[in-house]
């Protein structure tokens, strides 16, 4: 199952588009044009080459350039980095690799803290999403079939509205003179506003809020497919509901748990907007560090080294995820 197959809106529209497309393709001039196009593009090489050239050019080469610049020296120039290869006199070509950027990252506590803080925030956000989202997905999957599509639509709807504006909404709620503090003070619960904005708490709220649909959708997909007669059999054999949940439902929903966890964890790791708008100075996340190095300090080589460090972290986590998925598949 693809990860993005969980976003059903396009499918909804497309179901109605399909007969229309079939009809259009049958109109004679369109059919002739397609036939002609078929003859022109029957060069199969072209079909394969175009996307691969694009991917090589815009996926692979940029990564190699980041790697290259992470070994360059910082210069006050345009662009602000040195060239690695030097065509010196007497025809010698010298290759100069500067590992200083990486040493700098390793020595300065700021980068370590940002690295660890990112992992910590992303991990606990994904865990909180799981705790909130699992019962929601479970209730949705056990709802009446007519209700399911409505509930699913309600989960997907926030995804289609702007991410930036949804983060912005939380500023209005969490501010010192925001909606939550105003309400609590009006009710007489507190005399002084609780400081929530520009704290780690606000960052957690923002990440959990933004990524909760990504946790619910894969969980719902696995829970909905589950064979309920297994639970009936367990019940008939005298198994209590909670034990049946632990021994049957939970293991069967593991693929959804793994998919949902990584759909929250990996993007949260490199998150920039949420720590920037909701977090304070204590919330150093690696995405924000990279942004500041690049835009504020114009330190392109350092920013590239941060990027390589971040990419290695993501790759380690993704291979761990694949290992978990393989293990879960083998267990079944």
């Amino acid at each position: 199952m693809s990860r993005l197959g969980y976003l059903p809106l396009g499918d909804h529209l497309a179901v109605s588009a399909e007969p229309m497309v079939r009809a259009i393709v049958r109109i004679p001039p369109v059919r002739w044009a397609l036939n002609l196009l078929g003859h022109v593009t029957s060069g199969r090489g072209l079909v394969i080459a175009v996307p691969y050239v694009w991917l090589a050019l815009f996926f692979l080469i940029p990564f190699l350039i980041v790697l290259k610049i992470s070994f360059a020296d910082q210069l006050i120039a345009q662009p602000p980095y040195s060239s690695l290869v030097d065509f010196a006199e007497q025809g010698y070509v010298t290759l100069k690799l500067n590992v200083g950027n990486y040493l700098f990252l390793a020595e300065d506590a700021l980068y370590w803290k940002a690295y660890l803080r990112s992992v910590q925030i992303a991990f606990f956000s994904a865990l909180i999403c799981l705790v909130i989202g699992y019962p929601m997905a479970y209730a949705m999957a056990r709802a009446e079939p007519t209700w399911r599509s409505v509930l699913l639509m309600l989960v997907v709807l926030p995804f289609w509205t702007s991410f930036l504006l949804r983060v912005y909404a939380w500023i209005g709620l969490l501010n010192n003179n925001g909606v939550i503090n105003n309400a609590l003070m009006a009710l007489g619960v507190i005399d002084q506003p609780i400081v929530m904005m520009r704290t780690n708490f606000a960052v957690y709220v923002g990440i959990v809020y933004s990524y909760l649909p990504f946790m619910i959708l894969p969980l719902y997909a696995t829970l909905e497919k589950m064979d309920l007669t297994l639970l009936e059999a367990a019940e008939d054999l005298g198994c209590r509901p909670f034990k049946a949940f632990l021994t049957i439902t939970l293991p069967l929903s593991m693929p959804g748990v793994i998919a949902g966890f990584s759909l929250v964890f990996i993007p949260a790791l490199g998150e920039f907007v949420i720590p920037d708008l909701l977090g304070g100075t204590e919330t150093l996340m690696i995405g924000k560090v990279l942004w500041d190095e690049f835009f504020s300090n114009r330190a392109w080589p350092i920013a590239s080294a941060v990027a390589i460090a971040m990419l290695s972290l993501v790759l380690v986590i993704m291979s761990f995820q694949h290992w978990l998925e393989r293990r879960a598949a083998a267990a079944r």
Binding site: L9, E18, V25, L34
Partner: peptide, 25 residues
């Protein structure tokens, strides 16, 4: 049918929902 014709007359209409999904996404 030639491969390109198969693609435009058979494959494309069948995968159309995914193309609309992909476009919106």
């Amino acid at each position: 049918a030639r491969p390109a014709k198969v693609f435009f007359l058979i494959t494309l209409p069948i995968i159309m929902p995914a193309l609309v999904s992909g476009f919106l996404l």
